[in-house]
Amino acid sequence: MNVSDIASRPDSPGNEFAAFELLASAILVVDEDGLIRYANAPAEDLFEVSVRQLYAVQVCDLFQNGAQLQMSLKEANQHVFADKRQMLVIDRLGREPVQVAATVVALYNQAWPALIELREIEQQLKIDREERLLEQAQSNRELLRNLAHEIKNPLGGLRGAAQLLESELSDPALTEYTQVIIQEADRLQTLVDRLLAPHRAPRIVGDVNIHEVCERVRSLVLAEYPRGLNIVRDYDASVPEFRGDKSQLIQAVLNVVRNAAEALAERIAAGDAEIILRTRVARQITLAKQRFKLALELHVVDNGPGIPQELLDRIFHPLVSGREGGSGLGLTLAQTFVQQHEGLIECDSRPGLTDFKLLLPLP
């Protein structure tokens, strides 16, 4: 059932509620008896039933603490408040109950006296976390770009001065010191180039098949780790192609998979290391405050020791690494490349299972 089906009924809300289909939160419109007269698509997802099944259901029966909602609806009918917030718990057959933040809105001078907006607490926390990640990534990019430019010019002068000094030295033993300066300057130059890489190279946009990206990454990583590492494919063949920069996405996925392989050093030595590349299609996803009907979920899952809790919230920060000798740029650059495609990388980790999830909007 869609909005036009509901609107065609003489006893149902009209097209004025069609805009609710564009919202990320679940919307229910109820009559004076508490019967549902309209529900949007996110409400279907939340309750895991169709709109047709929700229609004319007593809304309070959907919640464990329905009596609390019933009192709010009564007050809305009496225009005691404009809107009221409360916590409700949804009963789901055979599943764990889910807690939601509910806002009951009184509709004045309308045939339908109340509207209920529902949002999962976990979903709200997820949206807040994504917003923080995006803001943090933007700040990091600006900081790194400015820092790299500030380092680059004096670094070139330092290297040039060392080369001139070396040419004037008559004692070969002293050139050992100038070589140290030149080599360290080159190392820093390489680091600066990596910091500036996402902002320098022009994007080459074309049709991207995510499974071709995964296969390329898989072959590259297995060439580095020919023994002791198993990379499992778990692909959803229904994932459509999308527009993007294939080389950037290969680099982003490669950085994540290589990071997982490095974390699996002990298990690779033992011969039981495993990385899973899993693709799925997700629906009704919010990325960067924009709602997408379809999105790609690419999971990179490993059976390594997990990321220390004190690092988990900072792994996408530049120069933060949990590995000795790591540059701390791999995940930062991966996040940058994915965000340039309007996507995001998230991470969930515990001992024995680390899951990096790359989210990308689909057409």
Rank of each mutant, 00 (worst) to 15 (best):
V98C: 02
E16M: 08
K293T: 11
E297W: 14
E48H: 08
G271M: 03
S50H: 10
D348S: 09
G304N: 03
F356E: 02
G94A: 04
I231Q: 02
W112F: 15
R92L: 10
P240T: 04
A39Q: 01
L147G: 07
I27P: 01
A7V: 05
A67N: 11
D207S: 15
A7T: 10
V301G: 00
R291T: 07
A148L: 03
A201D: 12
L22Y: 13
L115I: 06
E346R: 11
A269D: 13
P351W: 07
A260W: 02
E122Q: 14
R314C: 10
D245L: 00
A101N: 12
V80Q: 10
E120A: 03
D45S: 06
S12Y: 13
F356P: 00
R203C: 03
S349K: 09
L362K: 01
H299L: 14
L118K: 04
R200E: 13
L333Q: 13
L195E: 12
A185S: 15
V180D: 13
R283G: 08
I181A: 11
N255L: 00
L287S: 05
L353K: 14
E346G: 04
R132W: 11
N259K: 03
E168D: 11
A76Y: 11
R283Q: 12
V301E: 03
E224P: 09
V98Q: 01
G160M: 12
H199A: 12
Q124Y: 10
I182C: 09
Y235I: 10
A161K: 04
V213Q: 00
L311R: 07
L69Q: 09
R350G: 14
E342R: 12
N140Y: 14
V205Q: 08
V232A: 07
E324V: 15
Q64S: 11
G330Y: 03
H149D: 09
Q68S: 13
I307E: 04
F356V: 02
R216V: 13
E130V: 00
R280S: 13
E241K: 09
G66A: 05
N303G: 05
E21N: 08
N15S: 15
G271T: 05
L296Y: 03
A67R: 08
V80N: 08
E176G: 14
N65S: 04
V180F: 08
V281L: 06
D91E: 12
R233A: 12
